[in-house]
Amino acid sequence: MTRKMTHTLLRGVAAAALATASTAAYAQTCDWTPDRAVTYVVPWGAGGGTDANSRMLATMLEQKWGVPFNVVNRTGGNGVTGHSAISNAAPDGYTVGAVTVEINTMHWVGLTDMTHENIAPIALIDIVPASVLVGHDSPFETLEDLMAHARANPGELTASGTSLGGIWHLALAGMLNAEGMDPEAIRWIPSQGAAPAMQELIAGGVDIATPALSEGRALVEAGEIRALAYMHDSPMEALPDVPVTSEVLESGWTLAAYITISGPEGLPDEISCAYEQAVNEITQSAEWAEFKASRGADVVFMGREELTEFMVAQDTALGETIQAIGLAE
């Protein structure tokens, strides 16, 4: 299943190059522009990765269209509040938002009935693969060591990264499950996000953390922590020596969170197409590339069609994982 996911992903990335050609096809209906302030809803807090990407995009859309793009952080309910705010807004193009991977997990764990069908995907702007991190004094040198130890001593090791059932928890439990182990062979210790989890890791409070590798990059480069694996199928440009799970794991397990710009359900074609085109242009700019590089991330883009397909695939895959590890409602 994960193979399929990454396949779709790769196609999407490749699509970025072709997008200029494809947008020309429906260019005649894409001339919508906003003539007053637009609200940009971010379901997560200020200072996080979703916030940073969305604010950057909002600022560049603002420069492009000459109307204010006001970012509002609607946090709460592990993402439900903000996603509902996007989904329930008037589909007039004056409310868009950062729909994230949680749109494919929340409904499985019973937080909400809302799915990706209740929003209008516009474009994918970031792919954030998970990682496996340990402290610099950890006895584990490779992911293999770690997995072998966890297999032999289930329940001894602890890991953290986000709340219970959050995306980084799924990354760990899903990996264990895919490798034929008990998803609780490594116990999950919930935290209020990646930063407190990293603090726990360097303080020796937990043995493992599985947040986005981009979150741990500074600590890895500093030698405070070791990255045993990158849950992706190609190495991170900033940390090329970190092994990728698609190669070192038999199951080829990979998992990445993603960030999109999306609108409310029923957003007219003309409007979402205009946004898609604008975002596509922005992601090809030098400014955007520089911003991405500073965060150790690659420039990615998927248009509406690819993104919709991607979300459907993600939804099935993550649903299977959630059911396999016993968190489904």
Binding site: G47, A195, M198, A218, A222, G223
Partner: peptide, 27 residues
């Protein structure tokens, strides 16, 4: 020193510093 932000203000600040090519860390 660790690149771990204690609050949202420092989180934003780290993002800005990293854009300027300054990577937080013990070094």
């Amino acid at each position: 020193v660790f690149g771990i932000p204690g609050d949202s203000v420092t989180a934003i600040a780290i993002g800005v510093l990293m854009m300027k090519g300054l990577t937080p860390g013990p070094d």
